[in-house]
Design a protein around this nucleic acid. Sequence first.
DNA 1: GCTTTCGTGAAATATTCGTTCCAATGACCG
DNA 2: CGGTCATTGGAACGAATATTTCACGAAAGC
Lengths: 278, 278
Amino acid sequence: MTETLSPPRDFAALRTLITGRAPSLSKRLTQIAAFALEHPDEIAFGTVSSIAAKAEVQPSALVRFSQALGYQGFSDMQEIFRSRLRDRILNYDERLQQLRQHARDTSEPNLILQGFCEASARSLAALQDKLDPAALDSAVEVLARAETIYLVGLRRSFPIASYLAYALGQLGVRSILVDAVGGLAAEQTGLAGPKDALLAISFAPYAAETVALARAAAGRAIAVVAVTDSPFSPLAQTASPWIEISEANFEGFRAMAATLALAMTLAVAIAERRARGA
Amino acid sequence: MTETLSPPRDFAALRTLITGRAPSLSKRLTQIAAFALEHPDEIAFGTVSSIAAKAEVQPSALVRFSQALGYQGFSDMQEIFRSRLRDRILNYDERLQQLRQHARDTSEPNLILQGFCEASARSLAALQDKLDPAALDSAVEVLARAETIYLVGLRRSFPIASYLAYALGQLGVRSILVDAVGGLAAEQTGLAGPKDALLAISFAPYAAETVALARAAAGRAIAVVAVTDSPFSPLAQTASPWIEISEANFEGFRAMAATLALAMTLAVAIAERRARGA
DNA sequence: GCTTTCGTGAAATATTCGTTCCAATGACCG
DNA sequence: CGGTCATTGGAACGAATATTTCACGAAAGC
């Protein structure tokens, strides 16, 4: 019996088909199904014999597998595995090149938008790759234990601090946004006690007031957690733990996507940590 | 004479080599060099004859080209073009699958972080795809013409508004952040005149005060620009132009990466627009 | 101006590839 | 236990592929 239904022409559907039909296939063909899902790149570029060797099956089994799925032969199925690589998301530098090619069609605001989107995406990728998981866990731990979290972030970091104040409020976590309204920052943090914690957010050039508030709190045995951009930041030396964030630039303006994603993470993680008990 | 030095084994180096040696190659080989740099995917997937046809050269020329670069033959060089696709950045769904596999090794805060990173990345992608370029241009135009920009954003949108206040200040654009401190919002915007503009930022559920301020300003013939999340938003009906932003969710918290990228874009684009004269 | 060298095109060749076929094996059922 | 059918391995085939070869033409050197 031959499969008469037309086989999938895109990779996602093919993967579903393989997963679905694998249980009803013979031993060898199941073996190939598993290999195909695990090493799609091999199938995209390899030859029948090279793949057969790596999957430890006979070349003919590969052809049978393709036909069992409804394809005319191996080459026919291989085309789908190749299309997956063809339609892949472009690398950043290639995307940039492509953007610059279309530059003349695009207005300046839209060009700037592309630039900031790209910087944001780069920042997010760097965050996922380079953030120290232990530092994050520890920060959540310390902040979840605090009765009240004092949020300190000025200038560029103020939007982050104010977001945290909003999100923590939504989640029922008590926090105080330390703003500089009326120059009362020191008075606001002065109320903090040993059961509280202070979260300081600052990037180069570090706002002097943020550093001073963090130092003062640390001196009074208040837990200080910092989000900053370098091990040499004055906050890194004051706080424990501290989290390093590096944001990509565009036209001299640093993206904030990574910092904001971290802020969201802190808020939700702190709330969940509290919900499941100290 | 045969090239004895070992040829590059990664694509970046190969590209450099081609660029560097192109000037010293013969006419046909230069033609191939240009084609290779412009259509690397063709070379990765094609056969000698199919590529030769597309590049309008003889198959033998492709082999000569490969050998001129130091490879044993065409297939040898093709391998490098294929490796570039093999080592590509994974698609989002593939990355997700990979993440879920490692889920048990990861602490909860780190899982949450991944979730927000992914939501942010999705939001950014949607922004690039779906933003109306004309609306952005128009928004920049209107705001650049204003003497003073009044920034209105409350609750979740307040961090965005406060970032804009910071960025516009840095760029020398006069703006006033309308906060609700002391309930003086109406008094703050009351100073706005016909030469000013109001930028309102609000997402569902729309803060009543933001909507009221926008309507009041529009009623007094002040230009109102809005950033919101739906054509049915009350702001969309009040403002002209208005920009639609949709953010992805994670655990009920909307990402803000796209909105923030747009805010940065507005700030820089407005400043540049002003710099190059009205 | 003749020779030599290099570049090029097209056909010839050798290799590799995908596919098919068939015999052998193993599983299942009466 | 015997028979049937699906599955498998391996060889054989034909097609397609990469590579080499050779003849021709143009440019460079003496």
